[in-house]
Design a protein around this nucleic acid. Sequence first.
RNA 1: GGCUGCGUAGCUCAGUUGGUUAGAGCACAGCAUUCAUAAUGCUGAAGUCGUUGGUUCGAGUCCAACCGCAGCUACCA
Length: 665
Amino acid sequence: MRRILVTSALPNANGAIHLGHLFEHILTDIWVRFQRMAGNECYYVCADDAHGTATMLAAEHLGTTAAAMIETLRREHAEEFGRFHVGHDNYYSTHSPENERLTRAIYERLAEDGRTFTADVEQLYDPERKLFLADRFVKGTCPRCGADDQYGDNCQECGATYDATELGNPRSTLSDNTPQLRSSDHYFFDLAQFTDFLKEWTASDAVQPEVANKLGEWLTGGLKAWDISRDGPYFGFTIPGTEGKYFYVWMDAPVGYMASFENLCDRSEGLDPDDFWRADSDAEVHHFIGKDIINFHCLFWPAVLQGAGYRTPTKVHTHGFVTVDGAKMSKSRGTFINASTYLKHLDPEYLRYYFATKLSANTDDVDMQLDDFVQRVNSDLVGKVVNIASRCAGFIHRGFDGTLAEGVHDAELWAAASNVRHELADLYERGDVGRAVRQITALADRTNQYIAEHEPWKHVNDPDRRDEVQGVCSLGINVFRALVVYLKPILPAMAAKAEAFLKVEPLAWEDAAEPLVAHEIDRFKPLFTRIDRKDVDKVVAETVAEVEAEDAEDQGGAEVSIDDFGKIDLRIAKVVDANFVDGADKLLELRLDVGDDARTVFAGVREAYHPGALVGRLVVVVANLAPRKMRFGTSEGMVLAAGPGGEDIFLVSPDAGAEPGMRVT
RNA sequence: GGCUGCGUAGCUCAGUUGGUUAGAGCACAGCAUUCAUAAUGCUGAAGUCGUUGGUUCGAGUCCAACCGCAGCUACCA
């Protein structure tokens, strides 16, 4: 028996659980449930990732404390995962006493052994907010191409990467002030010391081949020291022996896996964290992550563990991202679906099954096509698998008192159904679940063919052929039982209902080895209902509505005084000319007559309006908006419009009689 | 820009170390059937395997270039 500890990446403690989190946790949960069915001792822990500047600012925004906010979200997250049947043994928080102790201990061990050093770092500082600014809180002009309004790490226009200190006219996105350049001592983990170790580790089968390729890039390029400290104010753990220095969130986040497990052990008889984490442990540790955090889990984390005298992960399972209908999840398209919205209208097992059909052992992105989602679930699960039990059970009850036959009617079919368990086990182990599902549905197909060939409905009233009818339907039920075994890691709730129908104890993997004979079963009740496409549409529509409400709150929620409003100079303008902009997908260049002066405004309405339809019409424009340099020219104002974007943009226009230049108040 | 991965029927994907007329499911069309949650079975139509070159007796499969898509590019989690 293997002893296995499994983790999923830690969701942020400042946002809701969405489709992307669900994908990762469902695929991990499927693996965990398989391991348990196969008889292994398997623990699955996770936690919210509580620390970081973002958490601090979010709590500030809500007018609460970080500690209160993260606890509320932690409960919410744990409950939502639970409703998707994700069976974490512990869903903890990285803001825990266990984690603080472990993180400090690990750091101290690394520091003692000369694995860390300090260095002076120059960084932008916001004097008003009194904090050092992470790259994403600084905007300015790209030092290479001169594009305005770029973040502190790279330029979205030309793709250049640079230091935030290189930006022209930098400003803090938190206060809009000009930041100052200040220097501060930072603590570094000397990752380069672990280069040889990491080369060896990544070449083992601890990571997928494409991940090893990616890591090879960093390894051959030379590893840089890793800055593990942040200056206060910061929401996190303080670094021992320092004043106002905090551990960078990614230092304590993976330690959170250990902390969550330790917390579980404290509440469980005979479970010792050391058995899993000591350097010579023969237990296994498996991390499931998305491909965006490969560097943290496959470079920093193994190096930290190695340096601190712990074992390294057995395997890091990396997956791709979820897209919806071929595009990134989008709030305005309604495909940035939160767990809570989904749960209002759809059964969690639909999603579990659909994700399972798309799972592979590689890091490709997984596209959730909403039509495909409905069809796959309805056709495979209701039409094929469940249908077998549904069509056989009636005969068993009508003619045979609900009792299955003594023997196996078709030894070949049963052998196929039973023996495939070895291959399926291998596929589950490797994470090639989509392929396993294809094998499973093929077996269901074969069984429906078998039943059709023997036409039990024709012979059920023929006394000479009663045994055959019972045999065929009993075998149908037995193959169905095997299918339930194979699908149980994916569909635990359906499996529980099927177990009740079959009147059996909870099924384990090896139960597929032997058929049920002369066994009484219950009457069949529907195990699974079809998805109605309308319910999917409701989820999408509600997601759009939520986003709009959120936007309204962000923009209109905070009250402004009439004086503030008075600062905005809204004017009626007439569109004199409108043209496409070469190279811009969304923009139209508009020449506007605003009374005395004419000006050029770039408006993101190309998908909704043809230039010809705009010439001559009156619009409302923000006349005193600071001119903004864009890639295609300077925009001198903003045209007001409603709608989520894309093709749904609706320009605001005045009633007849308004003249260009009139002030809107 | 550099790097990683992907690009096979309308959709989702299989295609082993290169080998005869490229496969499956969904969707579609026709037929059959009625035991089953309008479920099932049979038959059929549908692909110049991203493009162009190359290696080879032979390439979806190997090589090169190009095109397209996604992601990464370390102090955003």
